[in-house]
Simulated assay, not measured.
Amino acid sequence: MIIATSTFQDIDTIFQLYEAGTDYQKSVAEKHWKGFERGLVETEIRENRQWKMIIGGEIACVFVITYNDPFIWQEKDRDPAIYIHRIATNPQFRGNGFVKHIVAWAKQFAKENKKEYIRMDTGSGNDKLNNYYIQCGFNYLGVFEYPATDDLPEHYKDGSSSLFEIVV
C-alpha cells in the first residue's frame, strides 16, 4: 500500500468514491454527505492536502487533511493539529481497516510537521462508527452542536458531530 498526494487526474475517481461513500452512509446511518464542490477538491489537490491510498495500482481510499477547522473545533483550533476529513473507501477494498493505516500515517505526518493532535469528526449517532474510531486509537470527546454557517459543507447543517482526537 502506498499513501500519496492525489493529482488532478484523480478527481473523477475521488468523486466516484465520494458517491459510493454517500451511498454507503445512507445504508447505515441517517446522516450522510450531500455532495462536494469540484473547486474544493481542486484546491485541496493544489495545496497537497488530498491524499490517496493505492493498492495494486488502484485507488483504494482517499482522505483529506487540513490544518485548521475553526467552525467545528472552535477554541481548540488554536492547537497545533491536523484534521482528517472525507475518508472514502473504494467498495472493492472495504473492510481493510484503512483508518488504522491513516492513523499510523497521520502520526508520522504530525510529528514531521510539529503537530500535537490528530483530530476528526463524524456525524453523531453512529455508535458502530464511533467505536471503530476508538479502536483505531482516537479518544472520543463527545458530541458537538455547531452554529449554523455557510462555511461548512451541506451535511453539517442538520445535526451534530462526534469529535475524536489523538495526542501525538
Results as ranks from 00 to 15, higher is better:
Met1Ala: 02
Thr7Trp: 01
Asp10Met: 09
Asp12His: 09
Thr13His: 00
Phe15Trp: 07
Gly21Arg: 08
Lys26Val: 15
Ser27Lys: 01
Val28Lys: 00
Ala29Leu: 12
Glu30His: 01
Glu30Arg: 00
His32Val: 09
Trp33Asn: 08
Gly39Arg: 09
Leu40Thr: 11
Leu40Ile: 09
Leu40Val: 13
Glu42Lys: 12
Thr43His: 10
Gln50Gly: 06
Gly56Lys: 07
Ala60Gln: 06
Cys61Gln: 08
Val62Leu: 15
Asn68Pro: 12
Phe71Cys: 14
Asp77Val: 15
Arg78Asn: 14
Asp79Val: 11
Pro80Arg: 08
Pro91Phe: 12
Gln92Ser: 07
Gln92Ile: 05
Arg94Tyr: 04
Asn96Asp: 00
Gly97Ala: 04
Val99His: 05
Lys100Thr: 11
Lys100Ala: 13
Ala104Glu: 01
Ala104Trp: 00
Ala104Val: 04
Trp105Pro: 13
Ala106Lys: 03
Phe109Gln: 11
Ala110Asn: 09
Lys111Pro: 12
Lys111Val: 13
Glu112Ser: 15
Asn113Gly: 10
Lys115Leu: 12
Met120Ala: 00
Gly123Asp: 13
Gly125Val: 09
Asp127Ile: 14
Asn130Gln: 10
Ile134Leu: 04
Ile134Ala: 05
Gln135Val: 06
Phe138His: 00
Asn139Tyr: 08
Asn139Phe: 06
Leu141Trp: 11
Gly142Asp: 09
Pro147Trp: 08
Pro147Glu: 14
Ala148Ile: 10
Thr149Met: 02
Leu152Glu: 01
Leu152Val: 10
Glu154Ile: 15
Tyr156Ala: 08
Lys157Cys: 09
Asp158His: 09
Ser160Pro: 09
Ser161Leu: 14
